[in-house]
Each structure stands twice: as structure tokens, then as C-alpha cells.
Amino acid sequence: MATVTVPKEEKTAVVTSPESTQKTVTLRIARINPPESTETKFEEFKVPVQKWTTVLESILYVKQNLDHSIAVRYSCRQASCGSCGMKINGKPRLACYTKISELESNVITIEPMNNFPIIRDLAVNFEQLFSTHKKMKPFIINEESEVNSDTKEFIQTPQDLEKFLQFSYCIKCGLCNSACPTMATDTSFIGPQGLAQAYRYTADNRDKGKKDRLKIVDQSHGIWRCHFAGSCSNVCPKGVDPAMAIQLLRGYLLGFGK
């Protein structure tokens, strides 16, 4: 992405705190407003930080005190909603889950996630991720799943549960899709998020929709485009490990898995 650094005066808020020796870091925030402008500019802001300050808190500090026009999506502030994914110092991370202190840098560069269309500044469009997720039929397919007086609840052992539990922790933050090298070049690739969800339901012994789901992933822009670079699992903030799910699903397709 071609970028332009705007040489402008540093923006700093007057810190009224008595702690005059408080540490400050520089946030370099990408500013882009398509379709009016497709050029990315970086604006720099100095913000005071504590050792527990998260990147999201520092962005909100900027919004509150220095420049309220920065577009950022966030909600829960506790790594549960998956809204605040962005590229922080070159790597996709959740802003609410990343402490400034762990980045070990006095300059924090914040950009929108790659492989997602930009809405404005740090906010990206999740339309493709959600539509792919929906295509994976993310629900139990079982004719006997309707609850009525004649049906019993499905009984699963802890071992049955362990086969899919970790993949059900996906919060759809999109970090995996942003880190994936195949997603970087293939606009039609299902992506690690969708493929991991396909495995989550395929591994569930209550589900009877394996055939339908495998037909969806077994195509040219599907599971075979994954080359096990492991970047998706490297950035996942919830331990979902999409790379494992994809390899297990592929093993299942090849007849090695159960």
C-alpha cells in the first residue's frame, strides 16, 4: 500500500495529571477516507501511557483529547466481541487485548487490517467474512434437532466436546484472514475463519451436515488453497488454532481423519 507521512505539528493534549514524568508514546494512526481519498496518510499523536494501557485505550484517548474524527470500531474492550482488530506495528491484533508495554516500542503504528476493504481509517468492512461464515452453515444440521415432547437432548461425552470446543471460541475478529498469505492474493479464498468453522461443525457428533459442508470447502478456492503457513494460528487471540482445524478437515477429506 502506498503511504504518505504527513509532516504536521505534533498533536499533544495538556496533561493535567500531577505525574509529569509519565511515559508517553507516539501513535502513528493511518487515515484514509475512501472513496473521497484513497491515499493513506499517517498522523502522529503523543499519548501518556501506563504499563497496563491498551492500544484501544490510547486510541480512545486520542479521540477524546486530540482528534475526535478518527474512525475506529470497538465494543466490549475485553477480547470477546472481535470488533477492534487492526494492524498494530505490522501485525494483526485486537487493540483491546494488546498492551502498549508488550510492544516494546515508543512508536506504535496502527493501520486497518489487510485483506478487508477499508470503510474509513481503522474501520474495515466484514461483509465477506460474515457471508463466508454463513456459507459454512454454522449450525447443527440434524432433522431430530427440533425440540418436542418425543425428543431427548443430545448427549455428548467430554471427549466428544473436546473435538470441536476450541473452534467454537471464534469471535470472528478477522485477524486470521488478515494474516493469511493466501487471502493476500486470492480474493475468492474461503479463508481460515470459514474453514475452521466448517471443521467445528464437521467434528460435532450431533451434526449430520458433513456432506454439504465438505462439498462447499472442497473446491478450487477452498481448503486446497491453504498451504499451512500457520500465520492464522499465530495471530488468533482466542486459541482457536484455525491452522489445526484446516489440516484436520483436510485429513478428513483425504480419508485419514475419523
Binding site: 473436546e162 476450541q166 467434528a203 494460528s233 486459541g239 488454532d241 491452522a243 489440516q247 483425504l254
Partner: peptide, 22 residues
């Protein structure tokens, strides 16, 4: 690995969530 071997077993993820496949 692409046959699903040697990538670990699914389980309860524990903080700090190190991926079994890596």
C-alpha cells in the same frame, strides 16, 4: 501435516493460547 497428522489434538485452549499446530 496436511493429512491432519502431527498438528496436535483439539482441546480446551488455555491462556496464553499457544497454538498446538505450531
Amino acid at each position: 501435516s496436511e493429512g491432519g497428522k502431527g498438528v496436535g489434538k483439539p482441546g480446551q485452549p488455555e491462556y496464553p493460547y499457544r497454538a498446538s499446530s505450531l
